[in-house]
Write a protein that binds this DNA or RNA. Structure first.
Length: 733
DNA sequence: CGAAAGGCTCTTTTT
DNA sequence: GAGCCTTTCG
């Protein structure tokens, strides 16, 4: 097979440019992944580079997985030797092996954002700070951004200029100490410590530089400063670094991603070859043109000229719904209509939204209509309580210093260990100058040896603590004797967790989840248990289960715009294309954020191959309260000739007065063919009526409107509405 | 100590 | 509307 076959000239150039730094600017649908995978294949097959000496870094696990799968088809036997993974996974591996050189215990655990929150709140408490005055999650964000910029707590504090920053500095410092005490690293630390390792230990760096002759980075526009520093260090020796990105698809600035890294790259590697991939193979001309108009309104960007040989295709459909229910209903019905014509199957459709909260209504309506769907990242497996509990037990066995896990499970199932006891235990441990778990062990040993020991809690509390400690100690002992699965079973039995879970209302379901975790652990049963435990814990920390979404089933995909990046669908619905939602309200006072919102919208549009529906709703429930949203400003950037609206919509444009809703388009509610007006019951002023949605009310006025009759009704609960009889299904009562 | 109820805030995107 | 926290009561 010729690796260069079927590549266009620019793609081919990108594949063949293997010496020295390369920057590939790849528009949506331009065959980016194809270029990377073929480049790897070219290196291995044509240039005879050992697969061991190639690293391909991705941003998400999903991307890593896809790359592996596609490489499988090109260089089957070699795939296992290529280093393919996310920044975080690769760094975790490096730190497990070489972290000792900068005092990182190989038994470190990885803290996710929940764990982070626990520590930050603990830091708040210790500093007597009120979480209501300073928002802990904004502190976490600030800490994360500081880490992304490689600022230590001291660095940060030095620069603190406001009260908030001063608080962040204090919390950051304490938080970091708590992490160290727990022998834990957060996500940012994985990157930061690896950079630190490389900088402080030149021989370690040298080893990795020697090994990785070729380094490739996907989604480069999403890298932050640490990540960029990391690849810069790694490729510092041979300088065979190839980064692929698209500044217009940079949508992760909130995670400190910095699209300026692309500029820095050109600056740091002045001899870099720059290759543009501009031919789009995915979308129709209309879709590509629409997307180009949307993104062109951004000021902070270089103009690019995307083009395609694909058909012109259909116009983009602009739809206004009344409520989010109607919005969802329109989507489902349209999908039904299109699949009914036999042109599409359900798997061809995606419904995209800005915020996860929007998915609920969609789900409800999909369920009501019986339309199969898959919700990407609904309730995540690893976020379930029972899963987190069991993992916490394992983390504790692996690393008893892990205070977050200890506190999580010490009283789960209930052992009569309450806040009082825990407070006293913490104080006691502090006075002894040991960690909480060490204090527990001291207690256990004293009891076993019959020593007297002064402790500040009651004997009953001490007994409870000892029972717990004995369980963990037993598990630790067991972990030296049995494999991971046997340990799993021993743990869930001896801790009482199995009985505790099954006793619950939906206990069977929760226990089934635990068993699913157990089946994941089976992958590690052949390894020595200590090693297995480490690999298992690393995997559950870094791999979210959205990454392993089955795509085989023929279902409609419900997905956030962020998660949709990198995917493609025949037909794309973007819902909630409204001010305050897309652009999101949080971006209103920041032009840079606003540009990012536009890029998010751009990413959504460019996912579509054939059709795009942009749907907004006149009214939407937000925090229980209904609010009126106007169509997104981004829609103004789309030339009219590229769009159309559904027939029913142009007949009766929405009219609003005094912020009172005046005209319902509930026609999509029940029937597409309204009953003839003549057969409608007559309503006159004062009639009491009932409406499916609005409830009971009284007719205020009636008036002829074309073939139909418009009735204004004062509803008891929903206020004044003007309704068309043909559609509104009013009942006399 | 723990369960239950009530009150509060806050809602972007995720490795 | 949900999740989190605090309060209250047994």
């Amino acid at each position: 097979m010729d690796i260069l076959e079927y590549l266009n000239p620019a793609q081919r150039q990108a594949v063949e440019a293997i010496d020295g730094p390369v920057l590939i600017l790849a528009g949506p649908g331009s065959g980016k992944t194809r270029v990377i995978t073929h480049r790897v294949a070219y290196l291995i097959k044509t240039c005879r580079v050992s697969p061991r000496r190639i690293m391909a870094v991705t941003f998400t696990n999903k991307a890593a997985k896809e790359m592996t799968e596609r490489l499988e088809k090109l260089v089957a036997g070699s795939v296992k030797d290529i280093t393919v993974g996310t920044f975080h996974a690769i760094c975790a591996k490096i730190l497990h092996i070489d972290g000792k050189a900068i005092d990182i215990d190989p038994k470190f655990v990885i803290y996710d954002d929940d764990d982070q929150m626990v520590l930050v709140k603990r830091a708040f408490e210790e500093q007597s700070l009120d979480p209501k005055q300073v928002n802990p999650s904004s502190v976490i964000t600030a800490i994360s951004h500081a880490k992304s910029k490689m600022q230590s707590p001291a660095d940060y504090t030095k620069r603190a200029r406001s009260y908030f920053e001063e608080v962040v500095g204090r919390i950051y410092e304490r938080y970091q100490r708590l992490l160290t005490e727990s022998k834990a690293l957060d996500f940012d630390d994985l990157l930061l410590k690896t950079v630190e390792l490389f900088k402080k230990q030149p021989d370690v760096l040298n080893h990795y530089q020697e090994r990785y002759l070729h380094v490739m980075v996907d989604e480069f526009q999403d890298t932050n400063m640490v990540q960029y520093e990391l690849v810069r260090l790694l490729s510092g020796k041979y300088r065979n670094i190839c980064v692929v990105g698209d500044p217009d698809q940079s949508i992760y600035s909130w995670r400190a991603a910095d699209l300026h890294n692309i500029l820095s790259f050109e600056h740091d590697f002045k001899d870099a070859k720059v290759i543009f991939l501009e031919q789009n193979y995915r979308s129709t001309k209309t879709i590509l043109e629409t997307a180009s108009h949307v993104i062109s309104a951004n000021q902070q960007r270089k103009p690019v000229k995307l083009w395609t040989e694909n058909d012109t295709g259909e116009q983009v459909m602009l739809v206004e719904a009344f409520t989010e229910q109607e919005e969802a209903q329109f989507v489902v019905r349209e999908i039904e209509r299109l699949t009914g014509q036999g042109k599409f199957k359900l798997g061809d459709f995606a419904v995209m939204f800005r915020t996860n909260a929007q998915s609920r209504v969609l789900e409800e309506v999909f369920v009501r209509y019986g339309t199969p769907y898959r919700l990407v990242a609904g309730t995540k497996f690893y976020e379930r309580r029972e899963i987190k509990d069991v993992i916490a037990y394992f983390r504790l066995i692996h690393n008893p210093q892990d205070s977050v896990s200890l506190m999580r499970v010490i009283n789960v199932p209930g052992r009569g260990i309450g806040d009082q006891t825990l407070d006293k235990l913490a104080m006691w441990a502090k006075s002894l100058g040991v960690s909480t778990y060490e204090a527990l062990k001291i207690l256990l040993e004293a009891r076993q040896n019959g020593h007297d020991l002064a402790y500040p809690f009651t004997n009953r509390a001490a007994d409870s603590l000892l029972r717990f400690t004995a369980i963990i100690e037993d598990c630790i002992k067991k972990s030296r004797e049995v494999n991971l699965i046997e340990l799993f079973d021993f743990l869930t039995e001896s801790s009482g967790y199995k009985v505790y879970t099954l006793a619950d209302q939906d206990g069977q379901e929760r226990w089934d989840n635990v068993l699913e975790l157990r089946s994941k652990a089976e992958n590690y049963a052949d390894l020595p248990t200590t090693e297995a435990l480490m690999a298992f814990l690393e995997n559950v920390a870094l791999v979210s289960d959205t990454d392993s979404l089955e795509t085989a089933a023929d279902r409609v995909t419900l997905i956030t715009l962020h998660q949709a990046k990198g995917l493609e669908f025949a037909v794309v619905f973007i819902v909630g294309v409204e001010e305050k939602l897309l652009p999101h309200i949080r971006s209103f006072d920041d032009p840079e954020q606003m540009e990012e919102e536009r890029r998010i919208f751009y990413v959504g549009i460019t996912r579509a191959k054939l059709c795009v529906y942009l749907v907004h709703s006149f009214r939407r429930n937000f925090q229980g309260q209904s609010q009126v949203n106007s169509p997104s400003r981004f829609l103004d950037d789309i030339p009219k000739h590229l769009t159309r609206t559904p027939g029913w919509q142009t007949e009766q444009p929405a009219v609003t007065t005094d912020s009172i809703y005046t005209w319902s388009r509930s026609k999509i509610e029940e029937t597409n063919t309204p009953a003839p007006a003549s057969s409608l019951p007559d309503f006159k002023d004062g009639d009491r009526v009932k409406h499916a949605q609005f409830g009971e009310g009284v007719v205020v006025t009636t008036k002829k409107s074309g073939a139909d009759i418009e009735v204004t009704v004062a509803f008891k609960n929903a206020g004044l509405k003007r309704l068309l009889l043909a559609y509104a299904k009013l009942e006399k009562i």
